[in-house]
Computed example of a mutant assay.
Amino acid sequence: MITEPKANLKRYLDTVREALLWKLDGVGERDLRLPRTPTGTNLLGIVRHVANVEIGYFGPTFGRAWPEPDHPLVVDDADYDADPQADWWVPAEVSAAEVVAFYRQVMTFSDATIADLPLEATGSVPWWSDGEVTLHQVVTHVIVDLARHAGHADILREAIDGAAGLRVDVSNLPDGVDWPAYVARLRLVAEQFPAG
């Protein structure tokens, strides 16, 4: 059991990162990029988004510069001005493997900030109305944000090929469930109510 607060936060951060990345395993480039919602959400875009989120929160917030500002997956203010969804999709010339490698580089960068600073270290988030924060607040915020996006990825991946759960080796789903029968039962309950 991990009782040291920073180590505990880091463990949760790593768990949600890996949960998100395994949702890409074994999925082809087309399916990783295909918009799956009316707002265009796609698996690869989620990973690019969270990578840029981590750069922002663990970099400039604490006066630390991302070492590769010209990296093709980094989104800056000019990119957002041209396309407010710039970090939610990946250009065709960038492979899924490159996106994963980029996110792993970002993780190393973020982890260095977490390792180098105490949880009480202060920083400033310019896009927040009350921008003064501590590292503890930022790590917690990023865990919540990543968990939300990992949940999006859970649903998208299940819709692609039925892969579901927390990890490849631990699904967190009950064994022996007749899923088609379960879904049919839920459908019967829902259909008792009018549409719309």
Score class of each variant (00 low, 15 high):
residue 103 Y to H: 15
residue 178 D to P: 05
residue 142 V to W: 00
residue 35 P to C: 04
residue 51 A to Q: 12
residue 20 L to K: 02
residue 91 P to K: 02
residue 57 Y to S: 06
residue 165 G to Q: 07
residue 105 Q to V: 08
residue 13 L to I: 00
residue 73 L to N: 04
residue 17 R to M: 10
residue 110 S to P: 13
residue 58 F to G: 13
residue 21 L to R: 02
residue 2 I to R: 07
residue 81 D to T: 13
residue 154 D to N: 03
residue 14 D to L: 07
residue 54 E to P: 07
residue 149 H to F: 02
residue 29 E to R: 03
residue 32 L to G: 06
residue 115 A to T: 03
residue 83 D to W: 03
residue 43 L to H: 06
residue 154 D to W: 04
residue 94 V to I: 15
residue 16 V to P: 08
residue 118 P to G: 13
residue 117 L to R: 11
residue 155 I to L: 09
residue 91 P to F: 08
residue 27 V to K: 02
residue 140 T to L: 14
residue 185 R to C: 12
residue 22 W to T: 02
residue 29 E to W: 05
residue 90 V to I: 09
residue 71 H to W: 05
residue 16 V to L: 08
residue 101 A to I: 01
residue 84 P to T: 09
residue 146 L to F: 14
residue 113 T to H: 13
residue 54 E to H: 11
residue 117 L to N: 14
residue 171 S to Q: 09
residue 130 D to H: 12
residue 94 V to F: 08
residue 73 L to E: 03
residue 39 T to S: 14
residue 105 Q to C: 14
residue 126 P to G: 13
residue 59 G to T: 01
residue 54 E to G: 13
residue 175 D to N: 12
residue 61 T to I: 02
residue 91 P to Y: 02
residue 158 E to R: 12
residue 31 D to W: 03
residue 59 G to A: 04
residue 135 L to A: 09
residue 58 F to P: 10
residue 30 R to G: 12
residue 170 V to E: 14
residue 51 A to F: 13
residue 99 V to C: 02
residue 149 H to W: 03
residue 66 W to Y: 14
residue 185 R to P: 15
residue 133 V to H: 00
residue 73 L to V: 11
residue 51 A to W: 10
residue 50 V to Y: 07
residue 7 A to Q: 11
residue 48 R to I: 06
residue 89 W to M: 08
residue 20 L to D: 03
residue 96 A to W: 01
residue 28 G to I: 00
residue 40 G to F: 06
residue 40 G to Y: 06
residue 13 L to F: 13
residue 192 Q to M: 12
residue 159 A to E: 15
residue 49 H to E: 01
residue 77 D to L: 07
residue 127 W to A: 04
residue 76 D to H: 06
residue 58 F to N: 07
residue 176 G to S: 09
residue 65 A to L: 03
residue 37 T to D: 08
residue 127 W to G: 02
residue 39 T to A: 10
residue 141 H to I: 06
residue 71 H to M: 10
residue 174 P to K: 05
residue 108 T to K: 10
residue 164 A to D: 04
residue 175 D to T: 15
residue 72 P to D: 09
residue 183 V to K: 12
residue 56 G to P: 01
residue 168 V to W: 15
residue 14 D to W: 04
residue 122 T to D: 14
residue 130 D to C: 05
residue 24 L to R: 02
residue 151 G to N: 00
residue 102 F to G: 08
residue 139 V to M: 13
residue 90 V to Y: 05
residue 105 Q to S: 15
residue 77 D to H: 11
residue 42 N to P: 02
residue 20 L to S: 03
residue 28 G to L: 01
residue 187 R to K: 15
residue 117 L to C: 12
residue 172 N to D: 15
residue 28 G to D: 14
residue 155 I to H: 10
residue 153 A to H: 04
residue 90 V to G: 03
residue 84 P to R: 09
residue 58 F to I: 02
residue 37 T to Y: 08
residue 43 L to G: 04
residue 32 L to D: 00
residue 142 V to G: 05
residue 27 V to H: 01
residue 182 Y to I: 04
residue 28 G to F: 00
residue 158 E to T: 08
residue 181 A to R: 04
residue 64 R to W: 03
residue 154 D to A: 07
residue 135 L to R: 00
residue 126 P to S: 12
residue 24 L to P: 01
residue 162 G to K: 01
residue 10 K to W: 12
residue 16 V to N: 07
residue 145 D to E: 14
residue 156 L to G: 04
residue 66 W to T: 11
residue 42 N to G: 01
residue 160 I to S: 10
residue 188 L to A: 13
residue 153 A to E: 01
